[in-house]
């Protein structure tokens, strides 16, 4: 049940990432057309495209982890005995979680202050600084949930091996 919920959250995060990529393309195209045809590019386009990258990069992290997509060098570890491999897999996940998690926590901690002070990027549209940091923190949180789930499964899996 909880697993299904996590799957759903990951899928939604992925969809938002997809939408963000589509919007990025539309912003570039819109700006080029606007400039060429009407002498009016989209204001703050570069800023918004850059910020949307957070959705494209961070939101799918959990989904990629679920699909075992994160790249690792497997040639050496694959030759080790199964239990050692499981231990290494868990080690890898923990290190990954520590690194990404730290990033997420530090960024999330900036949000309240930036929200309170109403900080925005210099530019025509006065785009606020905090929303994408919330997205970043959300993407990291989902990723951490996925890591925990995977580690539990790693441990269960190795128990099963021990029984059989």
């Amino acid at each position: 049940m909880l697993l299904r919920l996590l799957d759903l959250i990951e899928n939604i995060a992925l969809w938002v990432g997809c939408a963000a990529l589509l919007i990025m393309g539309a912003l570039v195209t819109g700006s080029v057309l606007g400039r060429g045809l009407f002498n009016k590019p989209i204001p703050d386009d570069l800023l918004m495209i850059g910020l949307l990258m957070v959705c494209v990069i961070i939101l799918p992290l959990a989904y990629v982890e679920r699909s075992n997509g994160h790249i690792a060098v497997t040639v050496i570890a694959d030759r080790l005995p199964k239990p050692v491999q499981t231990a290494l897999t868990i080690l890898g996940r923990l290190i990954f979680a520590a690194f990404i998690g730290t990033m997420g926590v530090v960024i999330a901690r900036k949000v309240p202050k930036e929200f309170e002070q109403g900080l925005y990027y210099d530019g025509r549209l006065e785009v606020p600084t905090w929303p994408m940091k919330v997205v970043f923190a959300f993407g990291v949180a989902v990723f951490l949930l996925r890591i925990v789930t995977n580690i539990i499964q790693d441990l269960r899996g190795s128990d099963d091996d021990a029984v059989t």
Partner: peptide, 18 residues
Amino acid sequence: VLLALRVPIAAALGSVAS
């Protein structure tokens, strides 16, 4: 060492650097 232990590349670079 971390790479050889199959730690994801991003995690190996990021954690050693941190």
